[in-house]
């Protein structure tokens, strides 16, 4: 296989939910073996993008190909087969709260394989060791800090040896140390396990430090893409606003509203309920 062939290929994707168009004309190619960052303001549809890629949501039109599977035209069982080759780290880890850390990591193995207990134990402990949490195997998810929960979820996401790993906002709410740990794990797993990684984030500085390629989403489409360096030097206003963290610009600070003074001075007092 070509090292730089796209493993995830979205073409002209359109998706709307609840009467709102989230994506319109979205094109994105993710190259095999790379760490790809997807950035964009909150509410642009980054999580939705991951749901489209994994087939948890279905695009209205356009095509989505993931590792040779046409996601938009696949049955539930075909999608399940595809997801066994993918791992996803949810925003807050999404560990199963009624079972221990060990059992959480063992969960996919128990559901999909008939491995002997001894081998399951070996696999789970090595994955936990790789995220530095072998010592926490006996804890319950409620006993973990936010950063630890995410590392356990990461161990769970790689326990089936996936080809593709998706991260949804892996840094939100973490202290700088935990953040650094996750950052290094993303890079290390990608290179050591031969993965393709997609990291959704709005933490510009963190993510550009590990990403090979960056996509910037805004208004339902990709507005800029390139290496982190290319984006930093981009002349585009949207990119400047986002990378520079400016409050106002092409992405407006104000939610659409009637004229400010007129509304303040309105005598009949418009109601907000």
């Amino acid at each position: 296989m070509n090292a730089t062939s796209p493993i995830i290929d979205l073409r002209d994707v359109r998706y709307s939910v609840g009467g709102r168009t989230i994506f319109d004309g979205l094109d994105m190619q993710v190259l095999r073996g790379q760490v790809t960052a997807v950035m964009g303001p909150s509410g642009t549809g980054k999580t939705t993008l991951l749901r489209l890629i994994t087939g948890q949501a279905t695009a209205d039109s356009g095509s989505i190909d993931v590792a040779g599977v046409a996601v938009t035209r696949s049955s539930r069982s075909q999608l399940y087969a595809m997801r066994q080759r993918m791992g996803m780290l949810f925003q807050n880890g999404a560990l199963l709260t009624d079972i221990s850390v060990f059992e959480n990591v063992a969960f996919p193995l128990r559901e999909h394989t008939r491995l002997p207990e001894r081998l399951i134990r070996h696999l789970v402990l090595t994955k936990l060791q790789s995220v530095g949490l072998r010592g926490a195997a006996g804890l319950m998810p409620a006993e973990l800090s936010g950063g630890m929960a995410r590392r356990v979820a990461l161990a769970r996401a790689i326990v089936m040896d996936p080809q593709i790993l998706l991260y949804d906002e892996p840094f939100v709410g973490l202290d700088p140390i935990s953040m650094g740990v996750i950052l290094r794990l993303i890079r290390r797993f990608n290179d050591a396990l031969g993965l393709t990684s997609i990291v959704v984030s709005h933490d510009v500085h963190e993510i550009t430090a590990v990403a090979d390629r960056v996509f910037l989403l805004s208004g339902g489409r990709v507005v800029a893409q390139g290496t982190p360096l290319e984006l930093r030097d981009s002349p585009s206003d949207v990119v400047k606003q986002f990378v520079g963290g400016l409050a106002d610009g092409p992405v407006p600070f104000h939610y659409p509203a009637p004229d400010y003074f007129e509304e303040l001075l309105a005598r009949d007092g418009g109601r907000f309920a």
Binding site: R83, A94, L95, T97, F107, P108, E111, R156
Partner: peptide, 16 residues
Amino acid sequence: LMRATDQLSAMEMMAV
């Protein structure tokens, strides 16, 4: 609560 904390989506993602 499993729905609200993405546990059900996580299962879907683990092909369960």
